[in-house]
Amino acid sequence: MYRILTKKIFSPTIKLFEIEAPMVAAKAQAGQFIILRVNEQGERIPLTIADYNRERGTITVIFQEAGATTQELGCLETGEGVLDFVGPLGVPSEIENYGRVVCVGGGIGVAPVHPIARALKEAGNEVISIIGARTKELLFWEEEMRAVSSELLVSTDDGSYSHKGFVTDLLKQVIEERGNVSHVWGIGPLPMMRAVARTTQPYEIKTIVSMNPIMVDGTGMCGACRVSVGNETKFACVDGPEFDGHLVDWDLATRRLAMFKDKEQQALAARSCGCGGGCGCH
């Protein structure tokens, strides 16, 4: 069992776990992910690494309760653990001194963007970070992001906090006003990453996105996670998860992500604790 050392609740559906996994922590790098399985009947789900601590031997993940498995995960408390936890998987982000870079984290995507921004800043880049959420209460890690960025901009879709609008508004503003943006990292839900890629395309700024397709093993043996990049089929788990956002086939990725929608609803109905929200665990 991999023990949960810290649990933080950012909002009713967004939670953070710091999990004891020394072997993974020893090797983890920005841009990589883990796969976990809650219990014996559980499915394997991928989560991007939000932070790692080699001394404590821990990996931090942040997740949004979106279905049966993440709800079940969210019910776990400090001291409890998950049955399986494997990583670090995927290719690490390519970190160099590029000059001025922008790191955009949308919604839950703030978590995976965090170690990338930190590594970029440590490599000497001027890191302008932009984070956003639908509404104020879904926003997290503002201070943590500020700490690893040269500058931080924040947006909420409904204007309940800071800039009213989308992260892409702020991104366009930065590109227009500052110029000389070498690289953009955009991580979050598919529509947000697609919008980031669309925003930077006219400026021909290299834009890296972190694809989040359905995965099973995460080690390249099944191809469930295949994406089309520049008209070539890639396995996101071993070739990615980061790809050039201007080359990704977004329609395909969107459709493939919805592949098991009916089954996911069925699982939620079957596995939810049935409390309707009163049990205090979610």
Binding site: Q41, E43, V216, C222, A224, E264, Q266
Partner: peptide, 28 residues
Amino acid sequence: IGVYSANEFLTRTNLMKAYDFPNNATPI
């Protein structure tokens, strides 16, 4: 959608016991 590698199809079914969904959480 609906095109699987045999590895994925069989891994979901055998290793993850998708034939016993939703008692086992992996769908197929």
